Simulated scan of single mutants.
Amino acid sequence: MKLPWMSRADRRLWKSAKTVADLGELMARWLKGEIASRPGYQPRFGPDEETAHLVPTLAALCRAGYVTTCSQPGFAGTGADGLWWEQRAAVELVVTDPALLHRLLGAVRAAGMLVRVNDHRRGGVQDQPVVVTTRDGEPVTAFGGRIRRADMAIQWPGLDRKLYDQVAHGTYVSIAAPEYGPAGERLWVVLDHLTGLRREDPANPWTTTAPKES
């Protein structure tokens, strides 16, 4: 039985993070199963099984300064309810460094990805959400959309106050493949090239193999 709260040790660990780099490292470790709980997520649970193959990409993003908060793979098929489900490969993340944000937006827009930018600061950009999951053709899930101050408290409880202020005032970016289903998995290749996890192959950049992690 998993207890419905974060352990004291994990709470101390997240509270000890002082920089975005520290936060990204802890998120990468949680993604890899080295930490049982993370802020803003069900305690003592790791990523969903469907995102297991995305862990190297997501961990590399976190360690490169792009702290991921949510993701899903591309999928098309019959669900457990017998209805037809389609998903766009998609990820949400927060960026606090303007140079990193510029690099990210340039890379994903050049690859034709759907991009939404949102922050809760007064006068901040508030793009409309993008549908990423449908059930029998009806929208079920969307990424992006207006962010409120209350959303930040739910997303990042227990952080050091100065670090909380940084991520709460960061830029939240939602990126989705335009295609539904497995074809949209090319999103992860684009992001791997961005972080250096996957090396560029001028002949065919979409089929290069990411190096194994040590």
Results as ranks from 00 to 15, higher is better:
Gly112Met: 08
Asp97Gln: 03
Thr68Gln: 02
Arg88Asn: 08
Val91Ser: 00
Gly77Pro: 10
Gly79Glu: 11
Val67Arg: 00
Ala107Ile: 01
Gly74Val: 14
Val94Thr: 06
Gly112Pro: 04
Leu61Cys: 01
Leu105Phe: 03
Ser71Cys: 12
Leu104Pro: 00
Thr96Gln: 00
Val67Met: 06
Gly74Arg: 01
Leu101Phe: 03
Thr68Leu: 05
Leu83Thr: 13
Ala60Ile: 07
Trp85Val: 01
Thr96Tyr: 05
Ala107Tyr: 05
Ala110Thr: 04
Gln87Asp: 13
Leu61Lys: 03
Ala111Glu: 00
Val91Gly: 03
Val91Trp: 06
Ala59Ser: 12
Gly74Gln: 14
Asp81Asn: 14
Cys62Thr: 13
Asp81Phe: 15
Gln72Trp: 06
Ala64Lys: 09
Leu93Thr: 07
Arg88Lys: 12
Pro73Cys: 07
Leu100Trp: 01
Val94Pro: 06
Cys62Ile: 00
Leu114Val: 15
Ala80Val: 13
His102Met: 11
Ala59Lys: 00
Asp81Pro: 12
Ala80Gln: 11
Leu100Thr: 10
Val94Glu: 03
Thr96Ile: 08
Leu101Gly: 03
Ala89Ser: 10
Pro73Tyr: 09
Tyr66Gln: 02
Gly65Pro: 03
Leu104Ser: 02
Glu86Thr: 07
Gly82Gln: 11
Cys70Pro: 08
Trp84Thr: 14
Val94Gly: 04
Ala89Glu: 05
Met113Asn: 00
Gly74Pro: 12
Glu86Ile: 04
Arg88Gly: 07
Asp97Leu: 09
Cys62Leu: 13
Ala76Pro: 07
Arg88Ser: 09
Ala64Asn: 11
Glu92Phe: 04
Val67Ser: 08
Leu83Met: 14
Val108Leu: 00
Gly74His: 12
Gln87Tyr: 02
Ala76Arg: 13
Leu58Ile: 10
Leu58Asn: 14
Val91Asp: 00
Ala60Val: 11
Ala59Glu: 02
Leu104Gly: 06
Val95Met: 02
Phe75Thr: 01
Trp84Met: 14
Arg88Val: 09
Val108Gly: 01
Phe75Cys: 09
Pro73Trp: 06
Ala59Asp: 09
Ala107Pro: 01
Ala76Val: 12
Thr96Pro: 02
Arg63Phe: 13
Ser71Asp: 14
Glu86Met: 03
Gly112Glu: 07
Gly106Asn: 11
Ala99Lys: 10
Asp81Leu: 13
Val108Met: 05
Val67Thr: 11
Gly106Ser: 12
Thr69Arg: 04
Cys62Pro: 06
Thr68Pro: 02
Met113Tyr: 02
Val91Arg: 02
Leu104Asn: 06
Pro73Thr: 08
Leu105His: 01
Gly106Val: 04
Asp81His: 12
Leu101Pro: 00
Ala110Met: 01
Gln72Asp: 09
Val95Leu: 01
Trp85Ile: 07
Thr68His: 01
Ala111Tyr: 07
Met113Pro: 07
Tyr66Lys: 00
Thr69Val: 05
Cys62Trp: 03
Leu61Arg: 03
Ala99Tyr: 08
Gly112Ser: 04
Asp81Lys: 15
Thr78Asp: 13
Arg109Leu: 04
Glu92Leu: 11
Gly74Ser: 15
Ser71Ile: 11
Leu83Tyr: 15
Leu114Gln: 06
Arg103Cys: 15
Cys70Phe: 09
Pro73Ile: 10
Val108Thr: 04
Thr96Trp: 10
